[in-house]
Design a protein around this nucleic acid. Structure first.
Lengths: 235, 235
DNA sequence: TAGATTGTTAATCGATTAACAATC
DNA sequence: TAGATTGTTAATCGATTAACAATC
């Protein structure tokens, strides 16, 4: 019986970051690195790095550390980057177009095969040689072209229906840029990019910073000191 | 002395989601909601909702629940959405252009004032009436126009230098789409959107699902049962 | 060999969930 | 009032950090 060690989402989200740092080390011809040195570069604890990696196996060597290239490749395998997937983009507005133009995704095995929209002004246009089709053709295309992944860049109102349709047609995963939490059966993998949430998080942090500064200058005021913040333009 | 209750990043990241769900309730003319009912809609525990909200104050009423509009507005205030910020976009490639066209950010108080790039083919073009300027003009512009926030959609090689420059010129926050972890003094708020990391996370999950399915069909094989997966096209 | 550093177990810390008295 | 549901404390769970024996 296989030990079912469930990997936490926190660990998974850190893997791409390790991969990135190792890629940079590789570019700089660093051949080996210890967990301690990597931890210093990344601003995490060495303990965490070793724990994280040991979820997947022992990639290092006592007294030596980790071989950068080997570890890079192993993490690449864990991330499944040797797989290739057929991808469609659904919703070819500004963001959809931007993603359609990104050739970098192909480096990760995601190959854009089709583009779909409802807007008659867009239908028939091409991006990187791929014609934007009417969304009515999508069912046939997904089935015939063996599409694995859909990138959704749709308005809120349309995403749930399209997500359900794609699920029915056998899609494996959705990279979701629509501001919805798609409720789909768990065999469909959904990865969300909620830009609006991210922006609100930024807004929160800026607001906290602002309130803290106000707090500080109030304290200085109580002490009868002038504010050294006179250079600040607002707030 | 003020109680310094430090809010964890996990809580902060959930606030925009609460805000989104409350906004939808509001649209559907729901006037009150209990933590239990909201928890069912959102797929979290009622306990977590109550704990999260109580980091910021008591917004509900025993026996009644929460007034949707009031809670929506209060969370909006916590998120600092009543503030406005002057924004520039640095790097007007595909993604930068897409973001420049998004009018929705203005609803959250982020007003795009300037666009900057190094590409002479882009400089002089306009998006939504805003001219793309040479990045050499940026220092002057940031200082004179009182720019608070920079959206960075730059290649990896350029982001660190620009991030450092902007910091020097007094920027308050950076919404960073570049695939770098910017190392800046902590008074500069950085919110990262690492699309490549997100894609690799999707890749990981897809890969795990594939391995699990293979595992399952192997087990069936050992039992001498035919695979019911014959409809699956690959893997 | 001696020094370095892993893999891994144990300790700590923090976040989530449960429980319930307070109270609308 | 009785029922419902919050705010909040206590219990549990999980993730991070520390420590160190194993070993290169």
């Amino acid at each position: 019986m296989e030990e079912e060690k469930k990997i936490s989402i926190a660990v998974i989200k850190r893997l791409p970051r390790y991969f990135r740092y190792l890629g940079e080390l590789l570019e700089n011809d660093v051949t080996r690195i210890s967990s301690r040195e990597l931890s210093e570069r990344m601003g995490v604890t060495a303990s965490q790095i070793r724990q994280d990696l040991n979820n997947f196996g022992g990639f290092g060597q006592q007294g030596y550390g980790y071989n950068v290239e080997y570890l890079y490749q192993e993490i690449g395998k864990i991330l499944g980057l040797e797989n290739t997937y057929n991808v469609i983009i659904v919703g070819v507005g500004n963001l959809g177009q931007a993603l359609a133009n990104y050739t970098n995704f192909e480096r990760r095995g995601f190959v854009v095969k089709g583009l779909f929209d409802v807007n008659p002004r867009l239908i028939g246009m091409s991006i990187r040689g791929i014609e934007i089709q009417d969304i009515d053709n999508m069912e046939k295309f997904v089935k015939e072209e063996q599409i694995d992944i859909a990138i959704l860049t749709l308005p809120k109102s349309k995403a749930p229906k399209i997500g359900a349709d794609l699920t029915k047609w056998g899609i494996k995963g959705i990279w979701n840029f629509s501001p919805n939490d798609l409720k789909l059966p768990k065999h469909v993998i959904v990865e969300n990019v909620h830009l609006s949430d991210s922006l609100m998080t930024l807004s929160y942090k800026l607001n906290v910073r602002k309130l803290e500064q106000r707090q500080r200058s109030k304290k200085r005021g109580e002490l009868g000191l002038g504010s050294p913040d006179h250079k600040n333009r607002r707030n």
